[in-house]
Write a protein that binds this DNA or RNA. Structure first.
Lengths: 220, 220
DNA sequence: GCGGTCACCTACCAATCGGTAGACATTCGT
DNA sequence: ACGAATGTCTACCGATTGGTAGGTGACCGC
């Protein structure tokens, strides 16, 4: 039935330098946009151009592919971490701009990252909690400590709850990037003197983060 | 038009008057927690205690059940809208507290609402965009107008982009409530002098919203 | 030349998916 | 009392799912 259209004798050796990598990339994109349950192994194999059975040669199960995608994402995050901590080592407003800039950049580079993270924490909260505890919690602690320094020095509002503040901002960035295209474009007029919905979204995000942090109103 | 309740003309209620309602409730919970694709009609029927075929008597397809769940959710939202607009009709700080309080309450009442909304905008952004445009955009406009009044009166920061601000805060509330249990508990220590992670989350959310809105630092 | 491993393939499987057909019982207006 | 809805059931369907079995060719060190 359903005579599978065997395209040909498949003469192409199909270089396939890093099929594994290609599969992870395709899976990231599909998982992020359709969800884990909404994506079949067939879908992923089709994108890469191999058979489903060949996919299962590289990853012994769908679950393990999921883990590989997540591991890959977190390793990319870890690569960028030093740069972020360097940014956090500055002082005052430059520090603020640098840190939040690095954060935004990571997800702006590929919004699928934000979508996947959001989906994972919806689908498998328990697993995600552990991962966040390992990969993000220490970094949150570092930034929170910088905030406490700022509070002692007097340039950061004493009412700020450092950890909770960082978590909220991260949350805002992640979920914002994940659904910005849908959410903001629906609620913000497409053309406006202040700019495109995306621009207004990002600008206001940074304004909110800054205005709710420093004691004195920032000078833009 | 979708007649909500028959004007006493139809006697029809009969034995299982709320099978439909039960199914919608169960579907909301399951869709919110496992996603649409991660939930089978069998799962939903099991929760209610009927057979899958009986479910399909009430909803002619899974897709229509999805739409019914969404319609129900938005009708509940619409029921609460007047109260929210009354809150918005106040002035100054009380207005702020009332509005954001109503918003938080809606999702706090049942966090599945936030989870479902977030999932829908990830899974079917296009559809969600239209729904938001119909049900939320007008309300965003009203609140934004109030913010503009406040800016003219001088008690709200002139740098605030009214629409973008409202969207950001709504975004923060929705995605915050949707994943609070996982996200915050992972990154905030379970016991802390400032309170539970939930308390700190909500308190900081409101602080951020307020501090980034008013020109003068609010006095709590 | 030869065995082994790698990376892919075809062909298949049991389970589950959303959905249909039709029997059966209860309740209703007439 | 009776026919018609209404709501539930059992039994089934074709398609798709994640996963397995086993074959084939290219390339490797020896």
């Amino acid at each position: 039935m359903a005579g599978v259209s065997q395209p040909s004798g498949l003469p192409a050796p199909s270089v396939a330098p890093d099929a594994r990598r290609q599969l992870i990339d395709a899976a990231l994109r599909l998982f992020a946009n359709r969800g884990f349950d909404g994506t079949s192994l067939q879908d992923i194999a089709d994108v890469v151009g191999i058979r489903k059975a060949s996919l299962l040669y590289h990853f012994e199960s769908k679950e393990q592919l999921r883990l590989a995608v997540l591991d890959h994402l977190l390793s990319v995050w870890n690569e960028g971490l030093p740069r972020l901590l360097v940014a956090a080592a500055r002082t005052g407003a430059p520090r603020f701009s640098s840190v939040i800039g690095e954060l935004v950049r990571f997800f702006d580079e590929d919004p699928n990252r934000a979508r996947l993270l959001l989906r994972e924490s919806l689908d498998r909260g328990e697993d995600m909690r552990k991962r966040l505890q390992t990969f993000v919690a220490p970094w949150v602690g570092v930034v929170a400590e910088y905030i406490r320094d700022g509070q002692k020095a007097g340039d950061i509002d004493a009412h700020v709850d450092p950890e909770a503040y960082v978590v909220q901002i991260v949350h805002m960035v992640v979920s914002g990037m994940a659904t910005a295209a849908n959410f903001d474009h629906a609620l913000l007029p497409p053309s406006h003197p202040l700019g495109t919905p995306d621009e207004r979204h990002t600008r206001e995000l940074i304004r909110i983060a800054r205005a709710s942090l420093f004691r004195e109103r920032g000078t833009l």
